[in-house]
Structure formats: C-alpha cells, structure tokens
C-alpha cells in the first residue's frame, strides 16, 4: 500500500489546523465581544461551509485562483504563485472549508466566560492581547481542544474542495480521500478499503479523544469546586 496520500492528508490537516488557530482565535475573540452591526454578516459567511456543498466552495475557489481572474493573475504575475493544482491552494481551500469548525467552539467558549473576567484584567492594566493569552484562552481549554481536533479531522476527511482545486496529482494533491476515489474508479477495492479503513479508524480515535479529554477536564473541574 502506498502511504503517500495518507501522509499528505496528515500534512494538509496539520498545516491547515495551525493556520486556522492563528486566524480563528482572533476572529472568534472579535465575534465574541463585538457589538458591531456587521457581526451577523461575518457569522453567516464563516458558517457557509457548513451548509454549502464542498464542490460549490471548490468551484468558486477554482474561479478565483484561476490565472484568468484578477486575483489569480495578480498572484501569478507578481508573486509567482499558482494556487490551482498545488498544495498551497489546497491549504487555502481547507482553511476556508474548515474555518467554522475552529471559530465556532472558540467563540462559544469565550462567550460563555463571565464578562467581568476580561474586564477584571483590563482594570488591572492588562492589554487585550495579554488578557486573551493569559486569562481567556487558558479558561477555554476544552473549546480550544475541540476546535483544533474538529478542524484537523474535518480537513482529513475533505474531498470535494480538494478535488476541485487540487485535482489528483500524486505526492502533491492526491490526499487519502482522493486516493480512495481513485482506487474505486480503477475497481481496486482492496486498496480503497485500506485507505478508507485507516481514515475511519483515525477519525474515530480523534473524536474519542475529544470526548475523553473534555469529559476528564470537566470531571476535574467539578472535583475542584466541591
């Protein structure tokens, strides 16, 4: 069995999750405390991948990244960056596709914290960044963990977006889910089964980990409060 698609899937999931952490935390923080009238617009836009078929997102990204579009042309001409059929393109597509899985748990965790926790930190002279880093994030560890694991698992199982943007280039864009499709098309069910089984087991283990770790965390908190 060729493990390259599985390794590539893991690489994609790792890089995407890391990027989503950097993007998702400030975005969730802003959404959790803004009183802006534009908030529902942002929330709806972030949640779109939950309801849209992945092929729709993939199709529009294909149009945007295409050298015929203004953005694609700019990237190609000035930054020498071609996003279609590339690993970088896959990462950008995956970030957009998995964004709600990172933002929603963190936003919900932050919104559920008592308001005056952040305010207490501000009146102690602490900046918003210090407050987020030292007070808010350490108190939403389960939400952070959920965001990280769900984003990772969701990227791991991605198919439609990857197929539309990345195609099926071995070693570059052929991730595990594409490899399964490829093997089924070639009637090679044994190989497809191998990939599918590995993904099934990994996804189950990851979700099990979320429930066990979060359950353990809340149990410990409960004990500490008695």
């Amino acid at each position: 069995m060729n493990y390259a698609p599985i390794i590539l899937s893991f690489q994609l999931a790792l890089v995407t999750t890391f990027c989503l952490l950097i993007i998702g935390i400030p975005l969730a923080y802003w959404l959790s405390e803004t009183r802006s009238k534009a908030k529902p617009v942002f929330e709806a836009a972030i949640s779109l991948p939950l309801v849209l078929p992945p092929t729709v997102i993939g199709f529009y990204l294909l149009l945007v990244f295409s050298p015929n579009s203004a953005i694609g042309y700019f990237l190609k001409t000035y930054l020498d960056l071609e996003l279609i059929f590339s690993f970088t393109g896959l990462i950008i597509g995956s970030i957009i596709y998995s964004l709600p899985f990172m933002v929603h748990p963190i936003q919900s965790g932050l919104s559920n914290l008592p308001n005056n926790l952040a305010e207490a930190s501000y009146v102690l002279g602490k900046s918003r960044w210090t407050t987020l880093k030292s007070v808010l994030l350490p108190n939403i560890k389960p939400a952070l963990f959920t965001g990280i694991v769900l984003s990772f698992a969701h990227t791991l199982g991605e198919f439609g977006v990857v197929l539309m943007i990345g195609g099926n280039i071995p070693g570059q864009t052929r991730v595990a889910s594409i490899a399964i499709y490829d093997q089924v098309e070639a009637m090679n069910y044994a190989a497809a089964h191998h990939y599918a089984f590995v993904l099934l087991v990994l996804s189950f283990v990851i979700l099990l980990l979320v429930y066990v770790v979060n359950g353990h965390y809340f149990k410990n908190i409960g004990r500490a409060r008695i």
């Binding site: 005056n116 602490k126 108190n139």
Partner: peptide, 20 residues
C-alpha cells in the same frame, strides 16, 4: 483614558478571580 491607563481597582460582585 482606557481602564488600563487609570489607577483603578475594581471588585466585582462575582469576585472574578482568574480560575486558571
């Protein structure tokens, strides 16, 4: 002046000690 710039101490009804 932002709260950070004022020499203020604030004690809330719900304590708001940092749980972590």
């Amino acid at each position: 002046l932002k709260p950070q710039q004022r020499a203020v101490g604030y004690l809330f009804q719900s304590y708001s000690l940092f749980p972590n």
